[in-house]
Amino acid sequence: MKKVTFFLFLFGNICFAQQKIDTVSLYFENDVSALTTAHLQKIDSIQSDTLPIISLKINGYANSFASFEYNQKLSDKRATNIAEAFSDSINVQTIGFGEIDDPSAAYRRADIIVTRQFHTITKKEVVPEPTLENEMKTAVSGEKITLQGMQFYPGVDIIRESSIPVAKKLFFFLTENPSVKIKISGHVCCGRLGIPSSIDGMNNRTRVQNLSEARAAAVYNYLVEKGISKDRMQYEGLAFLFPLGKTDDDDRRVEIEILSK
């Protein structure tokens, strides 16, 4: 069974590019998600920089006042409000991380993570990274594909609203390719001292320690509800058995394996 890794190839003349990553934090008053004049000034300064923005990610947070559900919506709203203040020409990814188990004002914030390109030598031709649709179409039996952008609310098996488009892409692919069968695998972070572990995460919705399996089942059930036959799909939870050696977000993922085409 092989796992597919895609690379960005550069053709033509030899070229070299460097990236610069900056993080700007915006702080909020308690129970507030609206942007202030000071917030807007910081956003304007980010946009006025002459270095081109490659990617922009906004992580929203809330401290532990109020309920879990309320703080989840508050953190999402803080991130979304900031994203809306940027130019439409900038692609922005937002994630609301909900409440941090701490009442400190330091967690009433959103972090703007800006990646810029600041040095390029000579002209180059770039082959774009493949989309999820192309990855699924070109994959052969035994290959695994990470569902990039498939995210869940912290500690539970509920798919984020912002990730439904990813589930829809998988549904459309299966609809257009009725002979394809897949296996859906859920993964969680984090193992003790980074050691791979078969101990699954706790699903705070059900209080059952099967979070990776429950998240894979959530994708499976979404597809079943949309009309995909159960005979074409399997799902499993792999806990923290296959860490990627990168970040917690990379380990906290859902993959599909093409079983047959």
Rank of each mutant, 00 (worst) to 15 (best):
E129K: 09
P52F: 01
K246E: 13
A85T: 07
D250V: 12
M150W: 06
D157P: 06
G142A: 08
I46C: 06
A106G: 15
D76P: 11
P165E: 01
I182A: 02
F28L: 07
G245L: 04
D22S: 12
I43W: 06
A105K: 07
T146Y: 04
I54P: 00
N63K: 00
T37Q: 14
L51S: 13
K137N: 05
K20H: 13
Q47S: 14
L8W: 04
F68D: 02
R160N: 09
T5E: 09
L223Q: 09
V140A: 02
G227Y: 02
N30F: 01
N71G: 09
I100R: 05
R116K: 13
P178H: 00
S33Y: 13
K3A: 10
P103T: 12
S48V: 08
E176D: 14
A85G: 12
D157A: 15
K137Q: 14
D44T: 13
A167C: 14
A216I: 01
N81G: 06
T247K: 07
R78S: 08
K123H: 08
F97E: 14
E133W: 11
K77G: 09
Y235Q: 03
F7E: 07
D200Y: 00
F6E: 15
L35R: 10
S162D: 00
V126H: 06
V140H: 02
D88V: 10
K57V: 10
